[in-house]
Nucleic acid binder design. Structure first.
Lengths: 101, 101
DNA sequence: TGCCTATCTTGACAGATATCGAAACAGTGC
DNA sequence: GCACTGTTTCGATATCTGTCAAGATAGGCA
């Protein structure tokens, strides 16, 4: 009973070290929602993310940094605001592991 | 630019609370490899999992419990040995979020 | 230019969780 | 009883989550 990429492509220790941090980044309710928000538009200003959560802007920034360091999102400051966007390749790499085949 | 289920199906706070623990369970290199091992066969004895890692059997058992509580795997003792198998529905739920559409 | 405000990030810290192993425990079979 | 497999408990250490305060960057205006 082969259920997914996890089964057909055995995860080597090296792959695991590279991929687990990406799952880990999504393994927090706040970061999962942030990722969903960012993924649903071309790019999203931090100023639109912050009010969606009952958290300080410092905490929001820490979570965004976690997602950035995991390669899930990238960001750029343009003038006053900072914009985040999704990194589709990262999502695709995780999807490939889980995809039912 | 819609990249995945994360974008088309906005993750509600309730969904996030339910799904994030599953990503979190996969967010450790040891557990990701364990999951891959278990997913690639119908079921797998703990006695075959333990020697694949340089960890005590207590630690292996802790990780397996984490995966079980996240709903990623299930287990049953039959005689001397304990067998684990994947829960395809759990993997499918995560895959649905990440799938490129 | 200098000063002020606004946005976001970073550093430092406390409290909560996670990871790991040693030892004790619980099943099973002989 | 004994041996074997795996789990649970307990404790030590490490990592994570959140806030406050300070820093960095940009824009507006005198």
């Amino acid at each position: 009973m082969v259920c997914c990429g996890l089964a057909t492509t055995p995860v080597t220790p090296e792959d695991a070290e590279r991929l687990a941090p990406m799952f880990k980044a999504l393994g927090d309710p706040v970061r999962l929602r942030m990722t969903s928000m960012i993924a649903s538009v071309p790019e999203l200003c931090v100023c639109e993310i912050t009010p969606a959560f009952d958290l300080s802007s410092a905490t929001i920034s820490h979570h965004l940094k976690t997602l950035r360091e995991a390669g899930i999102v990238d960001s750029e400051r343009r003038g006053t605001y900072v914009y985040y966007w999704i990194q589709p390749d990262a999502i695709a790499a995780l999807a490939a592991l889980l995809r039912v085949e």
